[in-house]
Write a protein that binds this DNA or RNA. Structure first.
Length: 642
RNA sequence: GCCGACGUAGCUCAGCUGGUAGAGCACUUCACUCGUAAUGAAGGGGUCCCCGGUUCGAGUCCGGGCGUCGGCUCCA
């Protein structure tokens, strides 16, 4: 057999050679380090015979390859199942794949057995025994009937279902099983030669997870863990998680006094003075940028007659997520979206083609009844303030308007150094509007992305009920992805509301609507911002931009003078003249992450200057008051990044 | 919404098998008036999430509810 190694050199092997043979043929060191091989893109067991004769690409994977890490994590999942089956007789196993950062295995524990995080240690101990024993992973290929009989006799219903589906969907006649020690699992592989490849592992948490991700089916118990090639890497992994938790916006929100949550209104943040300062800076940015790009700002009510929601289609599709109330026996609902409101404004006058595109922007407050289990700090709330806008335009203007929206969004993200992931979401199952309209809408969005050369992910079936969308996603401190901005195309709402404009031909035409929120919502965007900056906002966003620290009581008057001078420019400046030591007041200002500390004593009062200390960087020398004011003003005006 | 865990002072947390609560920080007062990340001393502060039950007695045990956290599902 003939293969090509990653460096391009050919490798000739006898016909019955395995992956291990290939590694040995290259060198004894590699043979020892080998975890698996990658043949023509497929990762395979070392023990499996190779096949090929056309110079297929072949690579021997060692601990340096990310794919090898996946292999031992998958190994660890099997060892986890091994231990759980021994410790909990009668447990049913489902699946256990490697995932980003680790692995999991899903179990159905017997009636009455409950497992808690305290039990994880016991399971870990049993796993260690199996790893120390260095049990080989042995692959066998068996017929579907054999496999079914085995799992049926063991009462492993989930495995039986998996095999039946494989037969039905893929017409397989045989399946592969992997044995390690006493455990045999239905598994496509690959696995390392023995359990000893798992050099370091830990079980992390317990969670519920629906069988096959279907909320109408059994909820299984998922055990999460992780594994590495060394104890150091494992320790490093936990250290990084710890570090990530330190920038969690919920923790920083409390520590920095940005916002709070109350049991009296779950999912609705209370914005404290410091958080409101950040919010207001974003509002200013939002208003400036919208104005510059031809948007006109509007303000609309939050409570509407349910007739509006019936007409818009929200009543039928979105009712469960809305809040309703009766007002003098009239049924009314809080808006979950701003579009019907902006539609009312559009409809309030006759529109001409000369008016288009009409762009309305609003800091729109909407309420959505998000399920209790999904709330998450600022990132998933029930009262949502969108940086919303609706563009009403003609079919001919559509593509350009979409491009403008996307460019606008990307410009804003640029300002913060955000690199969002783009997703194109297409028609969902629960939808309104004709198939032709969906075809057109999806095609326009796709064309826009392709023409702009933007990379994107296709998210089939994830569109809004009225139209497809392009979303901008960002990742939070613990690696979870959140949708921020969205640009949505809508042929449906204009039809529902009978929107029209008079064309050059003096006939009535139907406009197209674009729904777009670029930051998404102020709540979520600020949540991501907090984590992005780890609470260390650039000067323009910082709740307190400078704090004046007089050395002794006799410097208090000069400290006030400094503060007044800077406040005259509109800067947010505090004076900390408490009779605490200067060391303590510096420490507290550092903990509050105030960008500039201005220390004033005899020398500074004398010279009309300040001793500047920058947050996280320390003493930055003495600066004249005017010079400082100028610097601060410039950084605020130009929105200088940190 | 579902699975599991958790809910004690403003915050972070301790409180063993039931005997009416404790630390550090924060806060208040006093003294210190200080040169780049914690001066010292004294003091105040708690419906132990809520409702019900068991018990002579519940922060502790049981049931229900609410909230939070980690997942799952969902996410216009």
């Amino acid at each position: 057999m003939r293969f090509t190694l990653p460096d391009g050199t050919p490798l000739q092997l006898p016909d019955d050679a395995t992956g291990a043979d290939a590694a040995a043929a290259i060198g004894p060191g590699l043979a020892r380090a080998a975890v698996a091989v990658k043949l023509d893109g497929e990762v395979r067991d070392l023990a499996r015979p190779l096949d090929g004769d056309d110079g297929e690409p072949l690579a021997v994977l060692t601990r340096r390859d990310p794919e090898a890490l996946e292999v031992i994590r998958h190994d660890a999942a099997h060892v986890l199942a091994t231990a759980v089956m021994e410790l909990y007789p009668g447990v049913k196993i489902s699946i256990g794949p490697p995932i980003e950062g680790g692995f999991y295995y899903d179990f159905e524990f017997p009636e009455g057995v409950s497992v808690s995080e305290a039990d994880l240690e016991r399971i870990e101990a049993r796993m260690r025994e199996h790893i120390a024993a260095g049990e080989p992973f042995v692959r066998t290929e068996v017929t579907v009937d054999e496999a079914l009989e085995r799992f049926r006799s063991e009462g492993q219903d989930y495995k039986v279902e998996l095999i039946e589906d494989l037969v039905r969907d893929q017409g397989v006649e045989t399946v592969s099983l992997y044995a390690n020690g006493p455990f045999i699992d239905l598994c496509a592989g690959p696995h390392a030669p023995t359990t000893r490849g798992i050099k370091a592992f830990g079980l992390d948490s317990l969670a519920g997870a629906y069988w096959r991700g279907d909320s109408s089916r059994t909820m299984l118990t998922r055990i999460y863990g992780t594994a590495f090639f060394s104890k150091d890497e494992l320790a490093e992994h936990y250290r990084r998680l710890e570090e990530a938790r330190a920038r969690d916006h919920r923790k920083l929100g409390r520590e920095l006094g940005l916002f709070l949550f109350s049991e009296l209104s779950p999912g609705s943040p209370f914005w404290l003075p410091a958080g409101t300062a950040v919010w207001n800076e974003l509002t200013t940015l939002w208003r400036e940028e919208n104005g510059r790009r031809g948007y006109r700002e509007v303000r609309t009510p939050i409570l509407y007659d349910v007739e509006l929601w019936k007409q818009s289609g929200h009543w039928h599709v979105y009712r469960d997520h809305m809040y309703f109330t009766d007002v003098e026996e009239r049924a009314m609902g809080l808006k979950p979206m701003n579009c019907p409101a902006h539609v009312q404004i559009y409809k309030s006058e006759r529109r001409s083609y000369r008016d288009l595109p009409i762009r309305y922007s609003e800091q729109g407050l909407v309420h959505r009844h998000e399920p209790s289990g999904t709330l998450h700090g600022l990132l998933r709330v029930r009262s949502i303030t969108q940086d919303d806008a609706h563009v009403f335009c003609s079919e001919e203007q559509l593509e350009e308007e979409i491009v403008r929206c996307l460019d606008f969004g990307l410009d804003i993200y640029d300002l913060f150094g955000f690199a969002p992931r783009l997703e194109l979401s297409t028609r969902p199952e629960k939808r309104v509007g004709s198939e032709e309209a969906w075809d057109r809408a999806e095609a326009v969005l796709k064309r826009t992305l392709v023409n702009r050369g933007l990379e994107y992910e296709l998210n089939e079936g994830d569109g809004a009920f009225y139209g497809p969308k392009i979303d901008l996603h960002m990742t939070d401190s613990i690696g979870r992805s959140w949708q921020l901005g969205t640009v949505q195309l809508d042929y449906y709402m204009p039809e529902r509301f009978g929107l029209e404009f008079t064309g050059a031909d003096n006939a009535e035409h139907r406009p197209v609507m674009i729904h777009r929120a670029l930051m998404g919502s102020f709540e979520r965007f600020i949540g991501i911002l907090i984590e992005h900056y780890a609470g260390e906002f650039p000067v323009w966003l910082a709740p307190v931009q400078a704090i004046v620290l007089p050395i002794a009581d006799r410097h208090a008057a000069y400290a006030s003078e400094v503060a007044e001078r800077l406040r005259a420019d509109g800067a947010r400046v505090e004076v900390d003249a408490r009779s605490e030591s200067i060391g303590r007041r510096i420490r507290e200002a550092e903990l509050r992450k105030v960008p500039y500390m201005l220390i004033v004593g005899d020398r500074e009062a004398e010279a009309g200057a300040v001793a500047l200390r920058e947050h996280g960087r320390g003493d930055a020398g003495t600066l004249g008051l005017d010079e400082l004011a100028e610097r601060l003003a410039r950084e605020r005006r130009e929105r200088t990044p940190r």
